[in-house]
Design a protein around this nucleic acid. Structure first.
Lengths: 122, 122
DNA sequence: TCGGACCCTGCCGCCGGCGTGAAGGTCAAG
DNA sequence: CTTGACCTTCACGCCGGCGGCAGGGTCCGA
């Protein structure tokens, strides 16, 4: 299948697919004319990539899951490195959420108490 | 006072102060040699800018607070626009936090249930 | 007069996941 | 042969708040 079909099948854009390839997450044969030709298992692979991205991982992170992105993805256990990466990413997410929550709290408080006067306690 | 002094007095870097000026949040006279010369009230102004930034506002947002960044900041009531901006920003923060919380939840869940098998339910 | 601390403007880099052209090649249908 | 859909690579734009460097000027003390 060609890039447009793969895109339609996965919800990604052709541009995104090329991006994944450049990131080393996706490979393709080439037709004589230069067109990318994807294998039978490509759609599943792409869906798995996008799933991991949706979990908050980066393209860099997803590399550690390469071994388990092939074929029947619902099997193959992820590598220990993959788990470690995911856990670290989880910690990063937690930290980020906590920081933003603190900011949000301060802003909300400022909005409340400044019903009276002063735009900032600086 | 010159930029280095203002920086030392406020915790900002000279680079950041020039950035605020470029964003239209800060003004300075010029000494004959071209050096920026800041007024008496500049430190307070900068501290207020940084306070608002710390609340999660952007430089763009802070513009709406310009009228109340002068001199004695603990007075002067913020403009209605300023309030509206702050509230909108609060909503943005809420949305972002909610989205990241959802992501975090999915990742955590994936990590838990995948103690057994399958790296992604795709 | 010279060194060195301080300042100036201007511009690219960063982080991430692509979007959006530009400029051109390929292929099947009419 | 031509149209037009699809593909190729290359390369900049974005968002935000600066960091950091280049290349040069200013000013003060010794």
């Amino acid at each position: 299948m060609r890039i447009g079909e793969l895109a339609a099948a996965t919800g990604a854009t052709p541009r995104a697919l090329r991006h994944y390839e450049q990131a080393g997450l996706l490979t393709a044969e080439r037709a004589p004319g230069g067109y990318r030709v994807y294998s039978h298992g490509a759609p599943a692979r792409v869906r798995n990539i996008r799933c991991l991205l949706g979990l908050g991982l980066t393209l860099e992170d997803v590399r550690f899951f390469l071994p388990c992105l092939d074929g029947d993805v619902t099997q193959a256990s992820p590598s220990p490195e993959g788990l470690a990466v995911a856990r670290r990413r989880l910690a990063v997410l937690d930290a980020r959420i906590a920081a933003q929550g603190a900011v949000r709290g301060r802003l909300a408080e400022a909005l409340e108490e400044r019903a009276g006067e002063g735009c900032c306690a600086g």
